[in-house]
Design a protein around this nucleic acid. Structure first.
Lengths: 144, 144
DNA sequence: TTTTAAAGTTAGTCAAGGCTAAATTGATTT
DNA sequence: AAATCAATTTAGCCTTGACTAACTTTAAAA
């Protein structure tokens, strides 16, 4: 008994990497719904030309991605018309926006330059667990 | 004059996303060289069966990736033999290991559970700028 | 109202990174 | 030495996410 093999933490990380691959698959989706939400808030509607410009990709790429988002139930769209978030998409966008903000605020609070924080937050936000996010939120604004 | 348009920081983020896409392209490479380094240190050599097991992918996938790493000058390998890091690969592995450690130590130091920190570090390490990494290193171990 | 420019779509290509199934090689046993 | 088994490789397929080029639609200007 008790010999459940005390595994070196650097071993059997397969799960970690599997979850990392899952996170990857969600990143583009999250970035898109977040951006679509921003566009609707700022400009009243989300057009693919604006998405293409903000992401720095071609209109064709946006088109592909929107089709996938539609297939997965995050947005609705009709040919040659603007793109809308479904409830599901809206909920995800909200969650992403909050997460982004927490990460950004935390980075700034520990002394990272705001511009760099903005940049790093974009990469980090998709890889932060709820637990770590909670710690970030708690630590933000502390006097160090 | 002066009307260089004060751009809302949420606009023209194309660069941010372009760099994000670049980071992506490097992630698998970084994870592989790091793991190959670990395997050589722990077991004397890196075999693809061990890589497959630790990443939780098939041997065929490892094979593909190793070919790409070889093409890009990070590893050398001969059919049916172990995999070795080139100097370039070794240098990258060292850098990744250090970065990983800094992120991990920082997360633990602010109160994240070690197991969760290990997990999150794996995702975060590829998205942390040098600047933020420096702040992490500086902040680690502070008394809060 | 017709023309034209901008926006959106479609078709075809490519690389990365997954997979399965089948073939091959190397190493161990018998 | 032959058989067997584990490791590796190969071939073929899939999805994502990028591209270009060509085409269509919508909206605005003439």
């Amino acid at each position: 008994m008790g010999d459940k093999a005390v595994v070196n933490p650097r071993h059997n990380k397969a799960e970690v990497f599997a979850r990392l691959r899952d996170a990857h698959a969600r990143e583009v989706t999250e970035d898109y719904v977040e951006m679509i939400g921003d566009l609707i808030a700022e400009e009243g509607e989300a057009r693919s030309v604006a998405l293409a410009e903000r992401f720095g990709v071609t209109a064709a790429t946006v088109n592909n991605t929107i089709k996938r988002l539609e297939r997965d139930g995050f947005v609705t769209s009709r040919p040659y018309r603007a793109i809308f978030l479904t409830e599901k998409g809206e909920a995800l966008a909200k969650k992403c926006r909050e997460r982004h903000q927490i990460v950004y605020n935390f980075l700034v609070s520990i002394g990272v330059d705001p511009e760099i924080a903005e940049f790093d937050a974009e990469g980090i936000e998709h890889h932060v667990s709820e637990e770590t996010l909670a710690v970030f939120a708690k630590e933000t604004g502390r006097s160090y």
